[in-house]
Design a protein around this nucleic acid. Structure first.
Lengths: 163, 163
DNA sequence: CCGAGATACCTTAGCGGTGAGCTACTTTGT
DNA sequence: ACAAAGTAGCTCACCGCTAAGGTATCTCGG
């Protein structure tokens, strides 16, 4: 069987046989899969009147130790977006009453973001659905294959200095 | 060793031991790796005064059979973006003289997009640099590991109906 | 204890993408 | 031959993010 990237590799081979395009077999598929997965996960979030960015914040707060409070800087580091993006995400979530900002008592420059009861309930309601979607997306792989894939991806992330 | 996703999985286990969050070991790393790779590839494109979107169009045209002409619809299918995005990408590339739009003689509704000489030269100049970057990003993996990874990703893409 | 530099968060202009909807043209079915 | 449906490409309002820069506060060496 052939996927889109196989076609691309074949085209390159025909047009530029002098180039070694083998890295594209991995990187091209990575990008393509990431896009497809993102779109699918987005559908699940939409069913709960959420988007990826908002869920990202709620989930990061939810999985932190009680009382589920983090600073915007901590949220920024976890989410790989800029500080401006975090500010805007929090503005939206705060307007919906899903998180609350309070002054940081230990640092006059800062604030602390906490899940509200509504935010806590929402993220706990979405989580099982989200995990089911993720599980479905990996349905083609055995448990052993998933573990091997996770290991390889981890190896790559570490080599690129993640965390 | 532990990467960011290992920490996330540990947090979920502590806060919600009832949930099986194992799919995140794959999907979380996929998203994170895709972001890191995108950022690195972007640096290479920036050195050539390009961005990912523009290179995507130029490369798609370049690898198609001579005379390297495609319709906007074909470009849309290859790039996984909407028709509006393709129009805007072509507007930018056309303004820079890297592609040219001509009426489609076979279909009065359509146009045909061709690489100009300048576009052809630019993409051929960027390609080796781009492939070197991709190769460097995969440096942590052996050839055998890369092939296995490509195979697993392909399996997933096919299961999700890619192409 | 003070001044320099670092840090936390926010603001804003600009960018590329989406999604809805438009016009023009082609295809299909009778 | 013609109406209906489909398709090609474009337009535009909106959205979330980035990058640059601002203000307020903290930290730390001298």
């Amino acid at each position: 069987m052939a996927d889109h990237v196989d076609l691309v590799l074949g085209q390159w081979h025909a047009q530029r046989p002098d180039l070694d395009v083998s890295p594209m077999a991995v990187i091209g598929r990575l990008k393509r899969l990431s896009r497809l997965v993102d779109a699918e996960l987005g559908k699940t979030f939409a069913r709960h009147d959420l988007d990826r960015a908002s869920f990202d914040v709620l989930a990061t707060l939810r999985r932190s130790a009680p009382p589920h409070r983090l600073t915007p800087t901590e949220l920024m580091r976890a989410s790989m977006v800029t500080s401006g993006a975090v500010t805007q995400r929090l503005d939206r979530l705060e307007a919906r009453g899903l998180v609350a900002r309070t002054p940081n008592e230990r640092d006059g420059r800062g604030v602390v973001v906490a899940l509200t009861d509504a935010g806590h309930e929402l993220v706990d309601r979405v989580l099982p659905d989200h995990l089911a979607t993720e599980n479905r997306l990996l349905g083609a792989l055995s448990v052993r294959e998933r573990e091997a894939l996770a290991g390889t991806l981890k190896q790559l992330l570490e080599s690129l200095g993640d965390q």
